[in-house]
Write a protein that binds this DNA or RNA. Structure first.
Lengths: 253, 253
DNA sequence: TCTTGCAGGATTGTTCAACAATCCCTACGC
DNA sequence: GCGTAGGGATTGTTGAACAATCCTGCAAGA
């Protein structure tokens, strides 16, 4: 729908490959400028942990820092609200949400459903998958391994995220991509509560590689089964770390 | 301060049941008034077909009709954009999206994944399901049957939608509810392209009842299988009607 | 001592008017 | 006929202003 050209004359443009890349570049430049740019900055601040869960975002403060008007800033807030990175409280302001164990379970349930289905569905359309389709996954695996060698564990987490985002991307579903983006953004919110990212991310570097190799070998059914268990284990890891944190700092004030 | 008072800053109140219901009521009253009220009106206009796909929503026009400021109207636009009921085109305005067959396939793929998983997952937590949990589904089934008797086919479609929304609700997942709301809203967008709603909705009245009875009998596995085929058939029906329409009116202007 | 009520200040919700940037359409010149 | 410039309309963004609401602290009363 978004790619529908202005001139409707060529109704069925059999969108070629290069057209898609050009369209992507244009879309990147289009960037609703002020509001989206402000949202980008805030998004990074939140996902990188500069803004901790529970923090309030003052409007007047941020208008000065971001150099945008209050109205534009509010539109940026709306954008991030619908990504799950902020929550509105009427007449009180916007806050970075504080997720609890129930949210972890909810998020992982959806991840399992979506990701496992994508992998399992690859079997049906195996022939039509163009070569090099798995390249982004391979890059992510190597990026994670490199970051781990350099002891940069947050970077490992990021590469891990991108691996899963690219995994979902194999389904060619715009809506799945959007949903996954939202889910992973919320998940990143959880990571900052965890003190030891190494124990959290380390086991999954090798598992990501294993998953990638199974996909490359077209063993989709086994890949789906592995991924299912993978996500169950990851969920348990986060829940454990989360409960430790909860016990350690019940009174933050 | 620091008087060991009774207040304790109430950090971890083990939220009791009645507290939750009160909180729900409060949330309902909160309604960000102007922007959300405007969005409600627009949402109805779109889902009921007053605003056809492809139509542009002029800002100045709507500020007069809805009696809100341009900024507030834009916030309403944002709300509906993230529900999938409107699309922004930079510097051109907001439009009612025109979905194509590719979108139908995408939407139904997600519906199948989510709904079937919910039904299948009910087996695991069957004991903890409180009595009367299926009542909303039952109401929707009867509402559809009543509307069909009165030849009110759009109402049948609405009841059908609510049936599936309530079905997803059985999973107790806030994020699944939100996703489903968005998916069904987009689906409603498609219905207005279809000339004969009767043929589209009629077969599923009985199937909804059958599904409900399977759930009531706790035959979750069979219900999941039925639902899967159900959604495949529904997808084919929409695709067929959609192609007819596409052939009949390629040049709308 | 504890609760209740009430100002005060601060923050958000909403409106308005204005200007800049961009798009669409038309007319002009070659 | 075609590319290009201009005009008009629409959107993007800003800043200030006012109303509504929330939070804090203090004082009055039980």
């Amino acid at each position: 729908m978004s790619t529908g050209g202005a001139e409707d004359t060529g109704s069925d443009v059999g969108r070629q490959a290069w057209l898609r890349t050009v369209a992507a570049d244009v879309a990147r430049l289009d960037r609703s400028s002020s509001a989206e740019r402000a949202a980008d900055i805030l998004r990074r601040s939140i996902t990188e942990g500069a803004l901790p869960p529970g923090a309030q975002l003052s409007e007047v403060e941020l208008t000065e820092v971001l150099e945008v008007s209050r109205n534009t800033l509010r539109e940026a807030f709306r954008l991030l609200t619908h990504e799950g990175l902020l929550v509105y409280k009427l007449h009180r302001g916007v806050f970075v949400p504080e997720l609890d164990e129930h949210d972890v379970i909810d998020l992982y349930r959806l991840r399992r459903v979506l990701e496992v289905d994508v992998v399992r569905g690859l079997a049906d359309r195996d022939p039509e998958l163009p070569a090099g389709r798995l390249d982004p996954l391979h890059d992510d695996v190597e990026a994670a391994e490199a970051a781990a060698s350099a002891d940069r564990w947050p970077a490992v987490g990021t590469a891990n995220m991108r691996f899963h985002q690219h995994l979902i991307g194999l389904a060619d579903s715009a809506r799945m991509d959007a949903m996954t983006g939202r889910l992973l953004a919320e998940l990143r919110l959880l990571f900052h509560v965890i003190a030891t990212p190494r124990e959290l991310h380390e086991p999954y570097i090798a598992r990501n590689r294993g998953l990638f190799e199974l996909l490359e070998a077209r063993k989709y059914e086994q890949a789906a089964a592995d991924l299912h268990q993978y996500l169950l284990d990851s969920e348990q890891g986060i829940l454990a770390a989360f409960r430790d944190k909860g016990l350690r700092a019940p009174r933050t004030t």
